[in-house]
Design a binder for these strands. Structure first.
Length: 481
DNA sequence: TCGACGACTTGACGAGATTCGG
DNA sequence: CCGAATCTCGTCAAGTCGTCGA
């Protein structure tokens, strides 16, 4: 880990040293008294050499390893559920190591223990043959709970939370759940205008808790914020979502440039990814926010009469199965559908259509704030490279006398390059994967692909096609979210 | 109502595999 | 066929949300 920045952090070193001491013999304890005097480079070099050796392996050796991995997958990577052989998601146990939280995590550097058979709970049906524990050991428990989907669980020692082994996204049980999720979002589509009218009405309520609820819901709907559960202080990095926003996370401007009633958001969200946004809001929202801020300190809750449990109970009353996160799914999917309609032109080429698709996908990723670590410098180099390539191609086109077909091929290649360059340029800050995998009803994409005769694999790779098999099966070109 | 706990989804990230131009 | 660029896929942390008992 020595190469990584976090090993220089005080918290990381302190936590690591504290846990390390617990593992020391008394002799080591008296000898090793200061982490800053410890030199780990020899170990570091050893592991670097190992990874170098791995890179240098011959084709044959690499193939051997690949075959061995495949054998392990075949042996441990599958189970039978309801008479179907299903792929298991994460069948390898998590190895020990030093915990790396994200952001400013108070527990970074702590020792993540090795998991032993005695930590493991197996969950299977009574009559099934489950894996035996290694010789001379035993499982913590073997149970038969058919109300849950996990096959194996254990308790992790950093946060004390439970970890699971579950099925792959391609499995029936995950696919059905996914489908259900999008069906709930589609039901929201049918009543969202009613709900919007309702929360706008609630902005005027005489009850503070109702107003707070209504403003929070407006943010969740309009900005696709997450619900924002309370977190235990000192246990995790300090991040927030909608309901847990604090006074210090927003700023109000009655006038900014040419806009009125602007709210500026600046906070760390999930995974300590920064959310920064300036949004003009309606006057009534603005006035409410001013009211919520009255007589509060920066570290006070913005919505002091609200939490996720209250909000979700309210939502449940408005629509069966409705919770805060459904808004993210709904808004992401509806945005994709609208954008696809808007951006796709019937007579453009396949590469151009794919660019349109990615642009629509990108609009959603931006809505959901799915950012990518900034690799600007690197990208700039590739951009220059691509520009050079394009120039070369143009030169070729101008200078050389070639047959019609060849010209056409080069032109196509040029256009494809340009499309890809544009795509890459626009993609620098934004990661499309998460929204594609978790928020976009796959049937929208399937329908689009069928309608425009775009090959499915241009949109979904192999794993994605497996995960969305249900949708590929189900959706025709006229599917409407 | 409140907090703890349990189950499940969502998320960034990086190593290794694959692709592609020369 | 080689090396760089890109893609894929696994990993595991960090969320959401429901339930349960006091």
């Amino acid at each position: 880990m020595l190469d990584h920045e976090y090993t220089t952090k005080e918290m990381f070193r302190k936590n690591f040293y504290k846990d390390w001491r617990k593992e020391m013999t008394s002799e080591e304890k008296s000898k090793i008294t200061d982490i800053n005097k410890c030199n780990f480079t020899e170990m570091s070099e050893y592991f670097k050499a190992q990874s170098e050796a791995r890179k240098q392996m011959s084709k044959d050796e690499k193939l051997k390893i690949k075959e061995e991995n495949e054998r392990i997958l075949q042996e441990y990577g599958f189970c039978v559920m309801d008479n179907h052989k299903e792929r298991i998601g994460n069948f390898r146990i998590e190895p020990p190591g030093l915990f790396r939280g994200r952001g400013d995590h108070p527990k970074m550097g702590m020792l993540k223990r090795r998991i032993r058979p005695e930590d493991i709970i197996i969950n299977c049906s009574k009559d099934s043959k489950h894996p035996k524990p290694p010789q001379g050991t035993r499982w913590k428990e073997v149970r038969h709970d058919n109300k849950v989907t996990w096959l194996v669980s254990w308790t992790e020692n950093i946060q004390g939370s439970i970890k699971y082994i579950m099925l792959n996204p391609s499995s029936r049980i995950k696919g059905e759940k996914d489908w259900q999720k999008y069906e709930t979002a589609r039901r929201l589509k049918k009543c969202v205008e009613r709900l919007r009218a309702q929360y706008r009405e609630d902005w005027k309520s005489k009850e503070m808790r109702v107003r707070q609820r209504a403003v929070a819901l407006y943010f969740i709907d309009k900005l696709a914020l997450r619900a924002g559960n309370e977190k235990e202080e000192g246990e995790t990095a300090d991040t927030v979502g909608c309901c847990s926003l604090r006074v210090e996370h927003i700023k109000l401007y009655s006038k900014m440039d040419d806009q009125e009633y602007v709210v500026e958001f600046d906070f760390l969200g999930k995974d300590s990814i920064r959310y920064y946004n300036k949004m003009p809001v309606e006057k009534r929202v603005f006035k409410n926010l001013q009211l919520f801020l009255e007589n509060k300190q920066p570290e006070d809750d913005l919505f002091d009469r609200l939490n996720t449990s209250i909000l979700n109970k309210h939502l449940q009353e408005l629509m069966d199965g409705l919770t805060a996160k459904v808004f993210r799914t709904y808004n992401a999917s509806i945005t994709l559908q609208q954008q696809l309609k808007e951006l796709t032109s019937p007579d453009e080429s396949i590469p151009a259509k794919i660019l349109s698709y990615n642009r629509a996908n990108r609009a959603v990723a931006i809505l959901c704030n799915h950012q990518r670590a900034n690799k600007y410098l690197l990208s700039t180099c590739t951009e220059m490279y691509i520009c050079a390539l394009i120039n070369d191609l143009c030169g070729v086109l101008r200078m050389v006398e070639v047959k019609r077909k060849a010209v056409q091929r080069i032109e196509e290649q040029l256009m494809k390059l340009q499309m890809q360059a544009t795509d890459r340029e626009e993609n620098k800050q934004i990661a499309l994967g998460t929204s594609k995998l978790n928020y976009l009803d796959p049937r929208i994409s399937v329908a689009w692909v069928k309608k425009w005769d775009v090959p499915m694999e241009k949109i979904y790779n192999k794993t994605q096609r497996e995960k969305f098999a249900w949708a590929i099966d189900m959706a025709e070109e006229d599917y409407e979210f």
